[in-house]
Structures are given as C-alpha cells and as structure tokens.
C-alpha cells in the first residue's frame, strides 16, 4: 500500500488518496474525499407553485420542528429543561432527533469555537432542506463575553444563515420557547427560506468559513 502525500500539512491521513489491495488481490485507488463525499453544489429549491399547497406544507413544517441534538456551547444546558416536564416543548411540536439527516432546526447554543464551527458546518450541510437555525445567546450575535477570544467566532451569520436570534447570557428556556414561536410565524409567512439563501450565496459563505478554519481537510460541500 503506497500513500501519496498531499501538500496541505493538516491533511488527515484517513482521507489521503492511496492504492489499496483488495481481498481478491486486485489493486485499486481509494480517494475518500472523492469516493465518500459529493462535490455537487447546493441547489436553490423553488417553493411549490400552488400557493395553497405551499401554505399547507409550511404549516406542517412549522408545527413539526425536529431539533438536532448537538450542543455547541454552554447554552445546551437549557435544552434538557426545555424538553422535560417544566417547559415540555413537545406541546409545540418540537422534538429532538439524534442525526442531522432527520432534523430541521439547528440550535447554536452559545459560543462557537473554531473547532466546533467545522462540525457545525458539516452537520448543517447534511440537514435536508428547508432547514432553520436558532442562534442562542449574545455570543452568536457579537461574540458576547468571548468577543476578544482567539478561538471563538464573533458573528454567526457570516458562516451559516440564522433565522432567529435569542439575546441574553444565558437566555432561559422561556426565551427559547418564544424564539420557537417566532420561527413558526416566520415559516408560516413563507420566510423560512434561509437554506436557499445559503445555496444562493454559497461562495460568500465558503470564503468566510475558510478564513476562519485553517485546517480545511474536507470537501467544500458535505452531503
């Protein structure tokens, strides 16, 4: 087995292009970045052409919000009380899902370290469209108390599009419920199209992301 070195010094050896001998003795080239990921660009999806149908679908989307179980910062401690008897978000059609493939809402809960940002981008891009982002806490708006940190980003919507911001440090579960209700209003008005905005301004977002993430060792679009 021979390995070809990539120029990027941060290259992950698991993703390196290499020649492999199969169990039947045949040799073939494995290029994980090309083989396992798609390099297709994201698409802008037009809403349904019949307004009544689109309104009905938006109502269903608004009333069935599946949240990705991914806590990025200290704000994720507000999620357990949100789902348990005290605040019981299930009443509003909010449920949590463990995999990005089945989720519609991404809660960025607090400060976002550069290392986490990379995972956030991958998870966000794996979610099916239409998808929504709730940004929790002051840290996602202007950096909050970490505004001069070497390791956190200051403005979230330079990297992924945000539907609703919740200010505070930390916002309580009531604030989060209010944000969910605002998000529902936006979706029902047909304004929950941030996934399309991301696809339309894809180059601008990627440029910003790459400015921050120095060890970019993944494809540009993570299906």
């Amino acid at each position: 087995m021979s390995e070809t070195k990539n120029n990027n010094k941060f290259e992950n050896p698991h993703y390196a292009k290499r020649e492999v001998t199969g169990p039947d003795g045949k040799q073939f080239i494995v290029d994980p970045i090309k083989d396992y990921f798609s390099d297709e660009r994201p698409k802008v999806y037009e809403p349904n052409s019949i307004p009544v149908v689109e309104k009905f679908l938006n109502w269903a989307r608004a009333e069935s919000l599946w949240v990705l179980g991914f806590g990025t910062g200290c704000g994720s401690i507000e999620i357990p009380p949100l789902m348990t008897p005290r605040f019981d978000a299930f009443r509003f059609g909010i449920q949590s899902r463990p995999t990005p493939r089945q989720s519609n809402v991404f809660i960025i809960s607090g400060y976002l370290a550069v290392k986490t940002l990379k995972r956030v981008i991958r998870s966000y891009e794996q979610m099916p469209s239409p998808k929504y982002v709730l940004a929790l806490g002051s840290c996602t708006i202007n950096g909050g108390m970490y505004f001069d940190s070497y390791n956190t980003i200051n403005r979230l919507d330079h990297y992924i599009p945000v539907d609703v911001y919740v200010a505070g440090c930390m916002p309580r579960p009531e604030a989060l419920l209010a944000a969910f209700n605002r998000l529902k209003e936006l979706i029902k008005e047909g304004k929950g199209e941030k996934a399309n905005e991301y696809a339309a301004n894809f180059d601008w977002y990627k440029e910003n992301q790459k400015k921050i993430i120095k060890d970019w060792n993944m494809p540009d679009y993570n299906w």
Partner: peptide, 17 residues
C-alpha cells in the same frame, strides 16, 4: 395530531440524498 404533521412534513422536505 402530531404524527400526521410529522408525516406530511417528512414527505414535503425538498432535498433528498
């Protein structure tokens, strides 16, 4: 009526891989 909503929502998602 949540199971019906979840069903409609899942059938109505736009992108598939």
């Amino acid at each position: 009526f949540q199971p019906w909503l979840d069903l409609v929502k899942n059938y109505a998602l736009r992108s598939q891989i």
